[in-house]
Amino acid sequence: MSHGDERDYRSEPGPRTEDPYSTIGGTRQTRTRLPGDDNDGYGRRPVRNTRSLAMVVGVVVLLIAAIALANLGGGEGKGSGAGGGGKDSATAGAGPTAPTGTKPVQGKNGTIAAGFAHDEQGAQSAAANYAVALGSAEMFDKAQRDAILQAVYDPAVVTSLQADMAQAYSPQFLANVGLNEDGSTPGGMTFVSRTVPVGTKVTAQGENSATVEVWCTGLVGMAGEGSTKPVTGTWFTITQQLKWIENDWKIESSAQTEGPTPVNGDNRASSADDIAGAVDGYGGFTYAR
């Protein structure tokens, strides 16, 4: 719109619908009430209704009570409106970004969470934590990788999987990501490999089996001055076939696909020192529904 097209607000106003600032059911007129003035400017006296004050007080009391009940409920290990698992856990979909359901697990298998609930929520929690472990920098070290595979996979497939992984993490592959051939990090550098679950979804559920998809974002690369493999972000989905073995969920098999990938934002890339400091300074989480 050019300046010549703008409405001259000093002229006589037209119908209210022509005013770009008009609102349905109101006008642009402003009334000012001075202290001590009981009239509203139109000769009418305001109606004082004590019931409105009582209603406001009542709403505040109800809100306080609701917050108190919510805090007490959190201590019982159940989220509001969500059951401990099974079919009832579907109600957690109403707030997928909020922690719901059973408490996070307390057990550990090495550095990996263990002792997940034998239900749908437990399967989701296991899949999320296993995705983090399998996407960690520790996977690039043979001894630590073998320990991770033993902790999260079905014992029946661990031996063959360790052999397959040894071939996959070949000296050439390690060199391609900027590591030394033995998987160690070059001096003055910080190797970054992190997987961060964004959400989980159960696509199949049986009494002792579950298929869980974990939507993830990840960081991988080498942080340091002169690095030719800068840290970059990725988006991918891991599908895990889980089996209930020895009172815990274990992976029978897994697969990974690209995306869903959002549009990149306008954030300015941080320096290598900032990235290295963040990796060293910010720890990870135990994920649970």
Results as ranks from 00 to 15, higher is better:
8 D>I: 06
9 Y>D: 09
13 P>M: 03
14 G>C: 00
15 P>N: 10
18 E>W: 12
25 G>N: 05
30 T>L: 15
38 D>E: 07
42 Y>R: 13
43 G>Q: 04
47 V>R: 14
47 V>S: 12
47 V>F: 08
49 N>T: 09
57 V>K: 15
60 V>R: 14
61 V>M: 11
62 L>M: 14
64 I>Q: 03
64 I>N: 02
66 A>K: 00
66 A>E: 04
68 A>R: 00
71 N>D: 07
77 G>F: 06
80 S>C: 02
81 G>V: 05
82 A>S: 11
83 G>H: 08
87 K>W: 09
88 D>W: 06
89 S>C: 06
89 S>T: 03
93 G>Q: 09
100 T>M: 12
102 T>H: 06
105 V>A: 08
105 V>D: 03
108 K>Q: 14
109 N>M: 07
111 T>K: 10
116 F>Q: 01
120 E>W: 09
123 A>S: 04
125 S>N: 00
127 A>R: 09
131 A>H: 01
134 L>T: 06
137 A>K: 11
144 Q>F: 08
152 V>C: 03
153 Y>M: 13
153 Y>I: 02
157 V>E: 03
169 Y>S: 02
171 P>I: 06
171 P>C: 09
171 P>W: 11
173 F>E: 00
177 V>D: 00
177 V>C: 05
178 G>M: 07
181 E>M: 10
181 E>C: 02
188 G>W: 05
192 V>S: 01
195 T>D: 11
199 G>T: 04
200 T>A: 11
204 A>K: 10
204 A>H: 03
216 C>G: 06
218 G>M: 03
222 M>A: 03
224 G>Y: 00
230 P>V: 04
231 V>T: 01
232 T>W: 10
233 G>K: 06
234 T>V: 15
240 Q>S: 14
250 K>A: 04
254 S>F: 12
256 Q>V: 11
258 E>K: 13
265 G>C: 11
267 N>F: 15
270 S>H: 08
279 V>Q: 01
282 Y>D: 07
283 G>C: 01
284 G>Y: 03
289 R>V: 12
